[in-house]
Amino acid sequence: MFFDALPGAISLGLIWGVMAIGVFITYKVLDFADLTVDGSICTGGAVCAVLMAAGVNAWLAVLVAVIAGALAGLVTGIFHTLLGIPAILSGILTQLILWSVNLKIMGQANTAVDSRGSYVIVTQLESGWAILIMFGFLAVIVGGLYWFFGTEAGCGIRATGNNPDMSRAQGINVNLNKIIGLMISNALVALAGALLAQYQGFADINMGRGAIVIGLAAVIIGEAIVTRISRNFAVQLAGVVLGGIIYYIVYQFVIWLELDTEYLKMFSAIVVAIFLAVPYWKKKYFYKFSKKRKYQSGGDINANGTHSSSGGDNPDSDVANMAESSPQGGQGNV
């Protein structure tokens, strides 16, 4: 029974993996906690479902959904950079705007996708196929992002998230980069929404509720698994997808145990909270210890105390530290 549901869980995990990669880009690369995603995943689903209901080809519908998602990211970016609204609030504002927009797009609270009568890219009726197709999607996405974040423009975005002061001093347009990052992220999230709508056969106004937590859970689980293996950017992204799959397998397991699934979001949130707290607490109590040893090596200009101020008890710096990812080697041979 549990194993019967496994293909479904894996394909759902892969679809949410796309979404989690979007979260990874804002949260880890840009150091920007973007809550737009709760709205933009639904926007993606709504746009795709409505277009398909009107007879538009599934691929074209997905493409339009992706553009819609990028526009949602643009709105958040403008709120944050041009209007100076704090990151989290910018995302919440766009999310709220999208709630109305999504309702207007669909004209009702949900829209069905005819996955039997018309061509769909992925459907739960054939989850085996869905898994295969999703692997294809993810290979293209991971490959594309790996390439992009190794380019001059991509390096600029990574620097922006990592150290905005330095970036400005090196002539990087920090605001523009934040906007681009948000657009890429939300385009991916909307892609996940569009695929999800096709997969489950409908788009629903509530389909994005708590999406950010699922995305973060996938990012965190993936990181816990992959960090020890490799710091390669592509591997990190693959880890995020793996995190999404694990999340949905656990989800399936909970259903199989016949536990009350209404608690699931609460559990997800608590798990994410714990995982976010662990590195902070670890640093607070074991920091001096572990860091000191690490810095004893190095050139003949030695650590001189300035180090201890670099991390310490700032929870934000931890977020930055977790984004240890980079396209390895910068691809000199591309």
Binding site: R158, N162, N163, D165, M166, S167, S326
Partner: peptide, 8 residues
Amino acid sequence: MMGTSPNM
């Protein structure tokens, strides 16, 4: 800490 990008 300000002049360089630590994670790069």
